[in-house]
Amino acid sequence: MNGTAFQPTQMHSITGYRSPGRKLVWLVVMLVILVLLMVASLAIGARPVSVSDIAGALAGHAQSIGEAVVTMRIPRTVLGVLAGAALGLSGALMQGMTRNPLADPGIFGVNMGASLAVVIGVAWFGIVSSAAYIWTAIFGAGVTAVFVFLVGSLGRGGATPLKLTLAGAATSIAFASLVMAIVLPRGDIAGGIRAWQIGGIGGATFARILPVLPFLLAGLTLAMISARKLNALALGDELAAGLGENVAVGRGLAAVSAVLLCGATTAICGPIGFVGLVVPHICRLLIGVDHRWLLPFSALGGAALLLASDIAGRLAARPGEVDVGIVTALIGGPFFIWIVRRQQVREL
């Protein structure tokens, strides 16, 4: 602009160019780590099991106690992969569409909005089906995302990263208080809601997982469609529009995808925080910020982080366990402070 043609090298500097060979190497490394964590998730718990028991259970046998234990852990591992991938991907989408390095479904209050909607549905409307939980959570996540963006857009400068973060944090605290106010008088649902509010993947079954798959698939599809548009948005709204991108459509696709992913995940796992904050930053260090690579890497990284956190929770309190939502908070809290101290909250 200003009479100077836009050069490809400018795009490379903005998208954090890394060579395709380096990206492929990290892709293989990430896949190997994820496979190893899946095996560890099947093997580690109150009762450790052997590799032969894992192989037997995966082959469809359940003749020994070890094989039966592995069979029970398979849905938990699958849910950990799906939920972690959805949260990592939604965090990358939120950071990309807002150009805010502090964006995360938990920090922006989206998870808590989905949680509040589910609690209201259970306490006041008696919802019980998986489909009702999912739709209610997605509705709550969507309304909260719009509310936080509108509040963060008030005043001078529009929706700055700092204002969005403060609006999200305040909304999350307010909604958490509302959840407690609704649950405390209801002894009949208080125990289950409190356990769900912590966030975890224990007790997973394929019957619980199957209803959420179409929503996660829709969110993943929209995310991949929005990847190029997010690269353009990284240049700034005016330049993105000058390059022929519809800024509103690009942000809308990313927003709908993020709401579907984190809303559906919250419905089945409860509000799990910080995965969407930590993972995209680590992935940018490895492969740059080209969203065509960053989004799938964030999904793989989110799955790996959630499984690793779940395994750590099982090891820390054997023969019991620490819920994965607590472990991710312990990891994400210091990471959040580190990002703030870097003083790079104005732009990605």
Rank of each mutant, 00 (worst) to 15 (best):
V259W: 02
A137T: 04
W124H: 08
A159K: 09
W338T: 11
V51D: 10
L260K: 04
R194T: 15
L294T: 02
V151L: 15
P214V: 07
G80H: 03
S13C: 12
A317R: 11
A55F: 12
I134W: 01
A232F: 10
L261W: 01
T205M: 11
P334Q: 08
S153N: 14
C262A: 10
V81F: 14
G325M: 05
L277F: 04
P105W: 12
A123C: 13
S115P: 00
L305Q: 13
V32A: 15
S50F: 00
L42F: 10
A207I: 06
L348F: 05
V118D: 01
A141E: 03
R47T: 13
C283W: 00
M94E: 06
R18D: 15
G168V: 12
V278Q: 09
S129H: 02
A159I: 06
G200R: 01
G200C: 06
H281L: 13
V151A: 14
L87F: 11
L116D: 05
P271A: 13
A190P: 06
A117M: 06
N100M: 12
P214R: 05
F206D: 04
L164E: 05
G187S: 13
A40H: 01
T4D: 02
S64E: 06
F215Q: 02
S130T: 07
V28Y: 03
A264P: 11
L315N: 03
S19A: 15
V289G: 09
A103I: 04
G244C: 10
M38K: 05
A240H: 07
A308V: 02
L230K: 11
P101L: 09
T9L: 14
H61V: 04
S257G: 08
G191S: 13
Y17R: 13
L253K: 13
L42N: 05
V183I: 12
G313R: 06
I44L: 09
A145N: 04
T15M: 13
L348K: 08
G106M: 13
G301V: 05
R208S: 14
V279Y: 07
V49H: 02
I339T: 05
M180L: 14
A223N: 04
G320R: 08
V259N: 00
V49N: 02
A232Q: 07
A92M: 09
R251Y: 07
V212H: 02
G276S: 12
E347P: 00
L24A: 12
V212E: 12
R346S: 13
L178E: 10
R251T: 07
G202T: 10
M180S: 14
G45F: 04
L34R: 05
T328N: 14
P8F: 01
G203E: 14
G142R: 00
A103M: 03
A232H: 05
L216P: 01
V279P: 11
G140V: 08
G45A: 08
F297A: 00
G244W: 03
